[in-house]
Write a protein that binds this DNA or RNA. Structure first.
Length: 749
DNA sequence: CTAGGGTTAG
């Protein structure tokens, strides 16, 4: 009888088709007839429960088994390790130890594998200790597992020492070391090992090659990675999904769509397109190669519930200027119940903050948190620019605090983003503070803090920083010099400007780009050296762009230089026929010379080109003209003519509330009209305000309740140039107060 | 128990 039941239960559990149901039935039988002493049976039962992830049942059996032995525990540990339930492996392992059982060479590797999977260095070191005490640390399988564990826990040095002590190293452990160094960015060390294994007679296999390729691309050595890919191919290896998904980002980075298409063909031929890594890498590659259509075609064929592919697709759309489409698709994904992850949200936030959708970025950040998705160290620096762009200082500070709570104190990306954000919000001291307390800096951080000073026109601090930069052996790049030259230009530092401009190629091996020439042109023309500026334009090795001619033209207006103004304007009318600013500048020069016929001619040109549709236009133009008129001194030979013209304009001006006699701006204008005039034209408004402000006798004190919709930044630039002046501006949701070039921001919501 | 490699966000 007893034997019969035992045999029945055993057979039932041991069959290859044994299911959870069988286990439960057997469990009942075992309980009923008291077979718990039978280790073989209960171990088999444990194995079934473990493989079906019935954790409570496992515990139940463990607690009731008369005396589970090493084999019972081993069975469980292997089962959980195989299923990647590493936390359960460690839990069972520690139960085993607490029962006084000594692990053997079979159970240790699984325990170590669990530590590897969990990146649990401390636990791994403890298991290492146990292995040493039990005399198993020299076991080659245990040793190899430990090497893997130390590699994954970024302890490559410890791994290397252990690795060296292994006598007959197989291709697997070599490959793991190669991949380990690659992942940590030590690709040269990886290559050394790759060559060394060959010397030692171990032929690299597909995995070894894949590790090398991933390493090169991980280090930004895209051409080398692609070269290895080709070498591997020529040695007769067939790239697999892993190879492809490593090499495609490199191809995308080099924007080599021809090679990308070839690899795509290979993917189709080998049937690798269903691999989720390959699919998202393909989408990413087409996105980076500006092949949005091909990307969409690929997306139609992949698993659209796979979040990686969806993320790559969304990023690809934004990258190709289809941000609105990306947002729509994003909403569709969300509506379909797709589980959006931190990459999805971060990607959308970055797309918005990079494309002038700053409020949307902030809103997405809030939304992701309500959805329970935790932002990470990449989300934060993607969001911070959104605050800077709209000078939302309070939001910026809140996110700064958030990043500190998350422990991103020393993060170089977060730090650099904060420097930029505070500078854009007018808080140059805070910007500098963020820079000063950074534990490590890179070129981006240096450029960020210098850009802040450039924005605020602080040339002396800038030059001081540049010396600091050189002392700390950080090499400048072309952006650094754009900042320096721009600050020199704002401060009229001609000598310093020339010095740094010349030092670029002589001392730093950086050839000046068109923006550096533009800075020099701006600098010289601002200080009135218009001829010198023009000779730079003539001599520079580039075709001068609108930016350069624009700098010359606006200085010609300030210095009333008709000849050069006409030259610059002629070029600008060709380069930017739709930019009303150029016509206005030129007409102002004509106005200052009393050439009213020319002024009217330009007005007609603009009218014919439909450039006067802008509701703020008339007002702005009048403001500019009046400014020009008043900027001239009273002994201006054409003063009478000017005053006459002014009287005529007065009538029109009154309509817009501009009254020279009351020294006020927009005073008599109905609130509604102000909004109508200025809504969406904040940049032009900023220009007007700046000009009015610099007009003697027309102090701009406080402008209240102006509604600006999209560009607070223009105001910051503008206000930075004011000394001791205050302006308050309200946009859709915020209230900005500017004083001494500093913006503070209060929220209405 | 039988070891290794990959995609998408700044």
């Amino acid at each position: 009888m007893f034997h019969n039941i035992y045999q029945t239960v055993f057979n039932c559990l041991n069959s290859t088709t044994a299911s959870l149901l069988h286990a439960r039935q057997a469990h009942a039988h075992i309980l009923k007839v008291g077979l718990f002493g039978e280790r073989q049976l209960t171990t088999r039962l444990l194995s079934l429960y473990a493989n079906n992830l019935c954790f409570t049942d496992v515990n139940l059996v463990l607690d009731s088994v008369y005396e589970p032995n090493l084999f019972s525990f081993s069975t469980l540990i292997h089962a959980f390790a195989r299923l990647n339930y590493f936390d359960h492996v460690l839990r069972i392992f520690s139960q085993m130890l607490s029962r006084g059982l000594v692990p053997d060479g079979y159970v240790l590797p699984s325990a170590i594998k669990a530590c590897t999977g969990l990146r649990a260095l401390k636990a791994g070191q403890q298991v290492h200790g146990i292995a040493s005490v039990s005399g198993l640390a020299s076991d080659s399988i245990v040793k190899s597992s430990l090497v893997h564990m130390y590699i994954k826990c970024d302890k490559i040095q410890v791994a290397q020492t252990l690795f060296d002590s292994i006598l007959d190293k197989d291709v697997v452990i070599w490959s793991a070391m190669v991949a380990g160094y690659s992942r940590l960015g030590h690709v040269h060390k990886a290559k050394e090992l790759f060559l060394e294994m060959k010397d030692k007679g171990v032929e690299p296999n597909l995995v070894s090659w894949n590790g090398m390729i991933a390493g090169f691309l991980n280090c930004g050595l895209h051409p080398e990675g692609i070269m290895f890919f080709q070498m591997m191919h020529s040695e007769g290896f067939r790239p697999d999904g892993s190879t492809i998904s490593s090499v495609l980002p490199g191809i995308g980075h080099l924007e080599d769509s021809v090679m990308g298409t070839q690899v795509h063909g290979y993917v189709i031929k080998q049937g690798l397109g269903l691999d989720k890594f390959v699919a998202s890498a393909l989408l990413d590659m087409y996105g980076k190669c500006a092949r949005a259509l091909d990307m969409s075609q690929v997306f139609d064929e992949v698993d659209q519930m796979e979040i990686g592919s969806c993320n790559a697709f969304l990023t690809g759309l934004s990258r190709n200027g289809l941000v609105d489409t990306a947002l729509v698709v994003f909403r569709q994904f969300k509506a379909q119940g797709l589980e959006l992850n931190v990459v999805t949200w971060t990607s959308m936030i970055a797309s918005c903050s990079q494309n002038g959708k700053d409020l949307e970025a902030l809103e997405l950040f809030r939304e992701m948190q309500t959805e329970g998705v935790e932002p990470n160290s990449i989300t934060i620096p993607s969001l911070i620019p959104a605050c800077g762009n709209i000078a939302a200082l309070m939001h910026g500070k809140a996110i700064h605090c958030f990043s500190l709570r998350k422990g991103y104190f020393g993060d170089i990306y977060v730090g650099s983003a904060l420097i930029d954000m505070y500078a854009k919000c007018g808080k140059i001291q805070l910007s500098r503070l963020c820079f000063d307390i950074m534990p490590t800096r890179n070129l981006v951080s240096w450029n960020a803090v210098m850009k802040g000073y450039a924005m605020h026109g602080k040339a002396n601090e800038m030059i001081e920083l540049f010396h600091m930069m050189q002392e700390s052996n950080q090499k400048p790049d072309f952006i650094t010099f754009t900042c320096i030259l721009s600050a020199c230009s704002q401060n009229g530092l001609t000598e310093e400007g020339w010095y740094y401009f010349n030092s670029m190629s002589k001392e730093h091996g950086i050839e000046p780009r068109v923006e550096h020439y533009a800075c020099m042109v701006t600098l010289l023309s601002r200080v009135g050296k218009l001829e010198e500026a023009y000779s730079i334009i003539e001599k520079m090795p580039f075709e001068p762009d609108a930016c350069i001619w624009g700098a010359l033209l606006s200085s010609c207006r300030v210095h009333h230089n008709l000849t050069l103004g006409e030259i610059a304007a002629k070029k600008l009318f060709q380069l930017e026929p739709d930019n009303p600013g150029n016509y206005i500048l030129m007409s102002n020069i004509y106005a200052s010379k009393g050439m009213w016929g020319e002024v009217n001619r330009i007005r007609d040109v603009m009218k014919n080109m439909g450039l006067r549709k802008n509701p703020g236009y008339s007002w702005i133009q009048i403001g500019l003209e009046v400014h020009t008129l008043l900027a001239g001194d009273k002994s201006h030979p054409q003063m009478n003519q000017i005053l006459e013209k002014l009287d005529k304009l007065n009538i029109e001006m009154k309509k817009f509330g501009y009254s020279p006699k009351t020294n006020s701006v927009l005073q008599d204008v109905e609130e509604q009209d102000k909004e109508q005039i200025l809504c969406g034209h904040s940049e032009k408004l900023a220009v007007v305000l700046g000009l009015l402000n610099s007009s003697p006798g027309y102090p701009l004190q406080v402008i209240k309740n102006l509604r600006i919709c999209d560009d607070c930044h223009a105001f910051i630039k503008l206000v930075s140039s004011f000394e001791g002046r205050e302006i308050s501006v309200r946009d859709t949701n915020r209230f900005h107060h500017f004083k001494d070039g500093v913006c503070s921001c209060g929220d209405y919501w």
